[in-house]
């Protein structure tokens, strides 16, 4: 996998705003950011209301994903360019989600909204309308999604990469530091997990670091490239960012995202939990 296949630069994006077959999609943690100004022509996907089942804790099913993309005017052969705020956390989550349902031509805008804004590139409040399509999704690709039993079995056997901040890893905090901390589950991390915060992979402008830098970061942290890897965070969005780095940029073959992540694992009865900085740091 080379980065040209999975990433586009802001410069490329600005030149291709009107290119037929290229659809820009904004996915933000703050779902109101789009209303304040978005990339011209971009549609919005609301990760909370449109990608999650409204009742069960799970994704929308295959039919639901087909309905969503059809309504957004996204066709199977479109090149989808995803971008968002917060260093592309939720755009990376959507990227992984698009891959999960088999969309082939999907890319991330390197640096997301942040780089776009820092560059002073155009944003608009214009309403975007795209003609509806008849989108057809594939069955979920189980090779990139991990569930809880597999995670418990992976302790000591596979690479477990906890991509949360050091204070969440050690158990001092239960959520990222820009979110309120009131939650019910236990704090800490999965035993044998290494802690490589997602942010290590990003430059300050939100773009990804170079392949050489990325290889050094995960190698130095003790990631064994010969073993399968499961990445997790709190709810699976930051670990999508790391999944993107390991699977799409560095080309590791067996990498799964555990979207249940700490909000599930830290609420399970009887599973082992480790607190403190862990043996790797």
């Amino acid at each position: 996998m080379s980065r040209e296949n999975v990433l586009v630069s802001a410069e490329w994006a600005e030149k291709n705003l009107d290119t037929p077959g290229v659809v820009f999609v904004e996915v933000d943690e703050d779902t109101t950011a789009y209303d304040g100004g978005h990339i011209p022509g971009a549609v919005r996907i609301d990760w909370r209301t449109e990608l999650q089942d409204p009742v069960r804790r799970d994704f929308v099913d295959r039919a639901g994903f087909e309905k969503l993309l059809s309504a957004k005017g996204i066709a199977n052969d479109d090149t989808v360019v995803l971008y968002g705020g917060n260093n592309n956390w939720f755009a990376a989550y959507a990227y992984w989600y698009f891959r999960l349902y088999g969309h082939q031509n999907v890319k991330l805008l390197d640096g997301g909204r942040k780089k776009w804004e820092l560059d002073g590139r155009p944003l608009t409040r214009d309403v975007v309308e795209r003609e509806a399509t008849t989108y057809q999704a594939k069955e979920q690709d189980a090779s990139i999604r991990a569930f809880r039993d597999e995670v418990v079995e992976a302790i000591g056997a596979k690479n477990l990469v906890d991509v949360r901040s050091p204070d969440e890893f050690s158990g001092k905090l239960l959520a990222p530091a820009h979110l309120p901390q009131e939650q019910a589950q236990r704090a800490g991390h999965i035993p044998t997990a290494i802690n490589v915060p997602w942010s290590k992979a990003a430059n300050e402008d939100g773009t990804f670091k170079s392949d050489d830098e990325l290889r050094a970061i995960y190698g130095d942290a003790g990631l064994d490239g010969s073993r399968p890897t499961i990445a997790y965070c709190r709810i699976g969005e930051r670990s999508s960012h790391t999944w993107f780095v390991l699977h799409e940029l560095l080309g590791h073959e067996d990498v799964k995202n555990y979207d249940g992540s700490w909000t599930e694992y830290g609420s399970l009865v009887g599973v082992p939990i480790e607190v403190g900085a862990g043996k790797e740091s």
Binding site: D30, N86, D167, A175, A177, L179, P180, P197, S199, K200
Partner: peptide, 20 residues
């Protein structure tokens, strides 16, 4: 010096974090 969190300041310039 490790990154912990990031927000975008409001139109009034406000930001907020919850820390240890």
């Amino acid at each position: 010096g490790e990154f912990t969190a990031e927000v975008v300041s409001s139109p009034e310039g406000d930001f907020r974090f919850f820390a240890a």
